[in-house]
Computed example of a mutant assay.
Amino acid sequence: MLHNDANKYEEAQLLSLLADDSEYAFQLIYDRHRSRIYQVSLRYLKSPILAQEVVQDVFLKLWFNRKNLKTDQPVEAWLYQVTKNNLLNRLRKIANEWKAMKGLGLIAETSINNTEAICQEAQYDELLQAAIAQLPDQQQKVFTLARQEQLTYNDIAQRLNISPLTVKTHMSRALDSIKVYLSAHGIIIPAALFIILK
């Protein structure tokens, strides 16, 4: 009982620090819960990349809501409720897009012409490079380090001397801008498939 009370007190202190913008408190909570959130997400989404995205989304939401959390309620319950909602939204979106693609005949058993596929891929790569080139300087740096050098958000944060949350924000804005650019040039990418850029 004393152990439980001590844990509750420590967590309440962490949440108070978090509400005061403590990145140290955020890091402690992140380190304690990220692994389980990742495993739960992986179990349902069957994709390490998508599972990592859920982890990032959940903790980004924690940071944005840090001043509204109740210190007398366990943060674990809050995190897993947000995780559950995130997973449900993703699974619904994937299911709906899969049905739409099937209905439009985009999922076919016939093989596509190889030459045509290569040409389309080259055209897509050219447009993607143009989309990246029009990004603001910092977004370009973050995107390039993440996608071409395969660095983690923490590694990028250290290299650019900014916080991992700022890296995530730059990345999200870069991806949104790229998606808009590609859409304007006739390449519509479903949200569930857009993850290949993430």
Rank of each mutant, 00 (worst) to 15 (best):
L151Q: 09
K84A: 08
T71H: 06
C119D: 13
I156H: 02
Q138A: 04
R43E: 05
L91D: 06
W98R: 14
L104H: 13
R173G: 02
V75P: 07
L91G: 08
L175H: 10
P74G: 15
R90Y: 05
S41C: 06
K67V: 15
N96S: 14
W78R: 12
K67R: 15
S41T: 04
I94C: 02
G105Y: 05
F64I: 12
V54C: 10
Y181Q: 04
D155M: 11
L87A: 04
F59D: 12
R43T: 04
K46D: 02
L128G: 03
E121G: 07
D155H: 10
T152C: 03
N68R: 12
M171P: 00
C119F: 11
R147P: 07
K179Y: 06
N86H: 07
K168Y: 15
Q39I: 03
Q134A: 00
S163V: 08
A131D: 01
V40M: 03
A51S: 15
K93T: 14
I49D: 12
K102E: 11
L106H: 06
I118M: 15
K70I: 07
D72I: 02
N161Q: 05
F64V: 11
W63Y: 11
A108Y: 03
Q123G: 04
N85S: 04
E97S: 08
E149F: 04
N86K: 13
A131C: 01
L160F: 02
G105W: 06
A146K: 13
Y153M: 13
T110S: 12
F59W: 09
A77W: 08
K102C: 05
Y124P: 03
E109C: 04
E121F: 13
A77L: 08
K67C: 13
Q150K: 10
